[in-house]
């Protein structure tokens, strides 16, 4: 197990190396010039060139790359071209909203979707199943901006129960923090609830046909124990996998939701940085995310071993 952890953590290094090369090249080979954007519309070619030299963009690509890698190795992700703030500071300031939204979404989705999927499988073919399965299709089909504005319209504008948009840090009290988080969480959760419900249902349907489920019933166990302990316990692996993938996708999916609700999180920071061709910020965020992806994968693999004693590393 220790060796497995060590090997997997080591694997972060090649992943980051490959990701950094791809990101670095993609940004520079793509259209758009940060120097031109920064210098403004009325800048002369000389001014743009001067700006480019100032930013170090006049160096050859290998030189720029080497410079950047050495920087990262020192734990420095560089400074933003537009705001001149350190990338680490920028990311840190945007971390809390995204993290709060992501965690709330995952927890809420799991709590709603797993029992829903179990119920749908148990009552296969009945109205409960049809409702859950039909709901899942709608959940997949609805884009986040539609769900978001619908929820805002009903709960914020009509009923006026919840704020329309914005984010309040936890330091200003749990109540305002929580109230601002409800609608974005609901919005972002739709697709995850749909996804996890479908997978739970499918996985449960397979397991419910297994012999040990029949054994559990033959032992005279209550149906909830048969379902949740025996069947769900054995359906865990595919569900965990999809939750893991869900968390990874979440980091991308959060962009639209953050825009709808004007939440100053990492998603919006990414969009702003890409639009401004703010190379260091984009690079920094992507490196950070890819590190997180590797860790999520590792966490999922470890959770397999926790749920299934037959798996060991």
């Amino acid at each position: 197990m220790v060796r497995f952890l060590f090997r997997r953590l080591l694997s972060i290094i090649p992943v980051l190396a490959i990701v950094s090369i791809i990101v670095f090249l993609a940004l520079r080979l793509g259209p758009g010039d940060p120097a031109a954007i920064l210098a403004g519309d009325s800048a002369t070619p000389e001014m743009v060139a001067a700006m480019r030299a100032h930013l170090g963009l006049d160096q050859s690509l290998p030189q720029q790359f080497l410079h950047w890698v050495v920087q990262i190795a020192h734990g420095d992700l560089g400074r933003s071209i537009t705001s001149n703030q350190p990338v680490t500071t920028l990311v840190a300031s945007r971390l809390q909203p995204t993290l709060a939204l992501a965690i709330a979404t995952i927890i809420f989705s799991i709590l709603v979707a797993t029992p829903l999927g179990v119920l749908a499988a148990w009552r296969r073919g009945t109205w409960v199943d049809n409702l859950a399965s039909g709901g899942a299709v709608i959940g997949f089909a609805l884009p986040a901006f539609v769900t978001g504005y619908l929820l805002v319209f009903v709960f914020a504008l009509k009923l006026q129960w919840l704020p329309v948009q914005g984010f309040v840090p936890l330091s200003e009290g749990f109540w305002p923090f929580g109230r601002h988080l409800v609608l974005p969480t609901l919005t972002l959760s739709t697709i995850y609830i749909a996804l996890i419900t479908r997978v739970t249902r499918a996985s449960m349907l397979e397991i419910l046909g297994e012999d040990f489920v029949r054994t559990a019933r033959a032992k005279g166990l209550p149906e909830r124990v048969v379902l949740f302990r025996h069947a769900l316990g054995n359906s865990a692996i595919p569900i965990l996998s999809v939750i893991g993938i869900g968390i990874a996708l979440l980091l991308g999916g959060v962009v639209v939701t953050e825009s709808v609700f004007s939440i100053p999180g990492l998603g919006r920071l990414t969009v702003e940085a890409v639009v401004a061709r703010d190379y260091p910020v984009v690079q920094g965020i992507i490196i950070l995310f890819s590190g997180v992806y590797v860790l999520i994968n590792l966490a999922v693999d470890i959770s397999y071993a926790i749920f299934d004693p037959r798996i060991s590393y």
Partner: peptide, 16 residues
Amino acid sequence: MAMIFQEPMTALNPVM
């Protein structure tokens, strides 16, 4: 009444 089955591998819950 109680019952035992043909295939004891699949009749037991593998994760308990």
